[in-house]
Design a protein around this nucleic acid. Sequence first.
DNA 1: ACAGTCAGTTCCCTCAAGGAACTTGGAGGT
DNA 2: ACCTCCAAGTTCCTTGAGGGAACTGACTGT
Lengths: 143, 143
Amino acid sequence: MACSIARTLDVIGEPWSPLILRDVYVGMTRFEQIQQDLGISRKVLAERLKWLVDQEVLERREYSSRPPRYEYVLTGKGAELCDLLTVMVRWGDKWTAGEAGPPVLYRHRACGEIAHVEPCCSACGEPMRATDIELLPGPGSNR
Amino acid sequence: MACSIARTLDVIGEPWSPLILRDVYVGMTRFEQIQQDLGISRKVLAERLKWLVDQEVLERREYSSRPPRYEYVLTGKGAELCDLLTVMVRWGDKWTAGEAGPPVLYRHRACGEIAHVEPCCSACGEPMRATDIELLPGPGSNR
DNA sequence: ACAGTCAGTTCCCTCAAGGAACTTGGAGGT
DNA sequence: ACCTCCAAGTTCCTTGAGGGAACTGACTGT
């Protein structure tokens, strides 16, 4: 499909993938850890990890050779997918967090403040919401 | 689960929902239009629309009373979900667009430039990638 | 009266997810 | 040498969700 949303969903569209990515992001990099943390079936987890490695979102790395043991780490491509997770968190915090408030706080290392992520324009730096955007056909369009 | 990612995925985690949202965002607001555009089964589309309306992401609006005809429009909550879509598009454009380039271009109405969306810090306004963030337990944490 | 439109609903079938048990390759204890 | 444990999967069976096609109901236009 000539749609970047569909192509992105092709990589991480199925519901477990973002959660797997989050686990790797926060340092749960091993099969057993992820499986227990998420309560996902081992079969599906093995499939997803293989898929994410094939897509170059994760890298399978040996952390012990005897016995052979592996962990999963983010690639550059995968790290940028985590930006998507932070935007998800923002929405979830704003619209679905209960009374208690957000379960996790984000500190921006550059400025040291507790903050959240906001979509901004790459040209002018001002906030850029979906409602501030005008869509134009691009070079990869098929019409 | 005490995780805003999981809560967000609960609302739009299943693979068709983001595509449905995109269609509504670009003006395809009717059942028949969406069904034909996506090639989704009518059964599943009806289920998803009902779910998204229940979640207050979409609103079901009568646009003709006789015969009774309905369309779906974004709520405020839904419009902010579209920010998530724009971030998906950015990733898809960058990592999965082929030779041809992105299928759609975005013009930021505020500055008039063709641009893409970038995650920035709500406190200092500088770019804020997943790798620039330090995670801290928040008030809604359960440990 | 009859065909056409839109917004669904119903039915059946297939395929993918879940769960539990099993496998592999080695480490460590006795 | 043997038993047991562990991480990282693989295999097998069952159940549930998605796809496809046909049907329904409320109305319009000719």
